[in-house]
Design a protein around this nucleic acid. Structure first.
Lengths: 362, 362
DNA sequence: TCGGTGATTCTAAGCGCATAGATTAAGATG
DNA sequence: CATCTTAATCTATGCGCTTAGAATCACCGA
């Protein structure tokens, strides 16, 4: 049994398809009695308008897309459950929720509020270009969370529809850049470590591949320069994703030459470093301070709790959606940016007191 | 400047639109040289195929939808941030992530894996029927997490496309019901309370409005009957969402007549009860055992940690997506169901020992 | 050179809907 | 009753793409 279309409804209601269409989109143009008649028939025939047809005719889709790196397989593999099967032990708060999930939340919320549909996409591992292009065909605007594909694809997309890059510097692509103001947040963090805890030597742990991470490092260098403290020339180690992580940290630990503080590229790395050091018999913050960046949930519940710079990820997602909707399908013609401010979260891993947490305060 | 279409590409490449289309979908039918030519022109013109047009022509959309109740406004309001603005204090683990987020995760993962687009929707507050119908027009199949609208709408949808209801009993609608096996999980929980902790009197806290919650209560009654223990005839109180929650619990506490255990409809209620009792000077599990159901993340980090029955929500979302995809747009003709097994999580709130948790074990 | 045979390409017909503009109906006015 | 005005409805076209089947091409052996 075929799905009912406007034609079916029109025929049964004794009107033309134009009238049926108007019944939905310009009700004021059709007489009350016919309107009711049409609606009655539509309901009786289980008529559901085809969005594809509508969008095609209108030239607008009414949906926004969020493309984010596919963390799921990583998470799943780590936990030995390829097919989304349940984990054996407890949920690992270190891999979920992450900042990407917060962004998604804000994006989704904004879209719903504006009556836009939300399309979620991500690299299926094989071909990011293919999947992002497919997605682009389905939406009026696209937000990208961690684009690891080539720039030329973005260039193409940004030419024909509004694209926003989240927490990832777009260079000079004609897109909207929504991110956190690394300068203020990390600056505050360094001030805290130096001013309150008297840190003399501060080292950085993190990769220099990601431009965003690179920027973080540079901000730290800059601030330390301003404060007249020793400035690290390079990160001492890569992040938690390295094959053999933290070998330099280990060497320093063995040589009893740890710095006063290890500032990490993000929270996951910070938590991994803390754990790594614990394995070597070094305690945080007693022997060395460790800080992160992002503000993932795990940092509130780790031991020690994690001093970090919190990125307003939900807000970032929210802004992205609103700005995309405002463009109504029209691409930006030059680079624009919106920076939101970060917030310093002072917790235990820098040596400050444990804040009181009421988990049961629902 | 208009967006490029097949016509533009065809013209510039000196072929017909059919050849352009075949280049993408039946590459074997077009000669290598023309294929390359077409692709080159397409790239040069920034050609992105319109999904609307493709879907219309094909009669299939290539997207699956997940409709879930919109928790966001609730969460936001609770935290005083209407527009997704950042919270002042720490993230409240009791409102995020919840089971809905886990479902979403599993659903999304499965869709990406299958190359299906994911459409996320939810009640925008005003009109659930309108929003779910709009969504239905955009997808080949629909999963519903907490449908609070009317049944007749579902009836309509289920007639023309595959619909799955998640953790919500569909009655006799021709849909797929994917949920957890309350019998086994809650049964185990009761066995534990009675067998290990020697509980004599057990009361239930939760609403009877939601059929799923009602079922939970009945399962408990049944098990207690089997064990020959006193069977509660009614819940003593509604859940955490009530206006004046836990008044009966309060009365029992004042009368020094608390039961041995309070089994709650879900984790959020359990955590709220624990907190409520703490305010009255009653300690859990010393004075009374309290248990939950769902297995939200907060239960792992509360004090005491929460004994609960964990629903494999990610798995449920995953299954839903796979089953929907298998239908290829064809609705189910009668009620079907897939039940996955729950897992008892024994933690502190029933009096058992604290399990060791390694938050930093990333 | 000619018929035959795949390989390649094209023609043509929709898919279901929105909407501009034409047409008709229904009142209103003189 | 003729004319004008407004309300209601319809006709006709196109949105960008897929695909069945027709047409054409390239190349074979006889």
């Amino acid at each position: 049994m075929r799905r009912a279309t406007v034609y079916d409804v029109a025929e049964r209601a004794g009107v033309s398809i134009a009238t049926v269409s108007c019944t939905y989109w310009q009700p004021s143009r059709v007489r009350e009695s016919t309107r009711l008649k049409v609606l009655e028939v539509a309901k009786r025939l289980n008529y559901i308008p085809s969005a594809s047809a509508r969008n095609l005719a209108r030239g607008r889709v009414g949906a926004l897309g969020l493309y984010s790196f596919d963390f799921c397989p990583v998470r799943s593999l780590e936990q030995g459950c390829e097919d989304g099967q349940e984990r054996e032990g407890e949920t690992d708060i270190c891999t979920y929720p992450l900042y990407a999930d917060e962004v998604e939340r804000g994006f989704q919320q904004a879209c719903w509020q504006m009556g836009q549909a939300v399309l979620l996409g991500g690299s299926t591992g094989s071909n990011p270009t293919r999947s992002v292009v497919d997605m682009a065909g389905r939406v009026d605007g696209l937000a990208l969370l961690s684009w690891l594909g080539d720039i030329s694809t973005l260039q193409r997309l940004a030419t024909i529809m509004p694209v926003v890059m989240l927490a990832q510097n777009p260079g000079d692509l004609p897109v909207l850049y929504v991110s956190a103001d690394n300068y203020a947040g990390l600056g505050e963090l360094i001030d805290h470590l130096v001013g309150v805890h008297g840190a003399k030597r501060i080292e950085y742990v993190g990769s220099m591949i990601d431009p965003e991470m690179r920027e973080r490092f540079h901000v730290i260098q800059e601030r330390l320069t301003q404060l007249g403290r020793p400035v690290p020339l390079m990160p001492v180690d890569e992040g938690f994703a390295a094959k053999q992580p933290f070998q330099s940290v280990k060497a320093m630990q063995l040589a009893r030459d740890l710095p006063d503080a290890l500032v990490c590229e993000n929270d996951q790395t910070a938590l991994a470093v803390i754990n790594f050091l614990r394995g070597l018999g070094t305690r945080v913050p007693d022997d060395v301070m460790v800080t992160g960046a992002d503000g993932i949930l795990a940092g509130q519940f780790s031991d020690p709790t994690l001093t970090t710079v919190q990125l307003p990820m939900q807000r970032i997602g929210n802004i992205a959606a609103h700005e995309l909707a405002r463009q109504e399908g029209k691409p930006w013609t030059k680079t624009k940016s919106v920076l939101v401010s970060e917030k310093l979260k002072i917790r235990q891993s820098c040596g400050c007191e444990r804040p009181v947490i009421h988990v049961s305060d629902c």
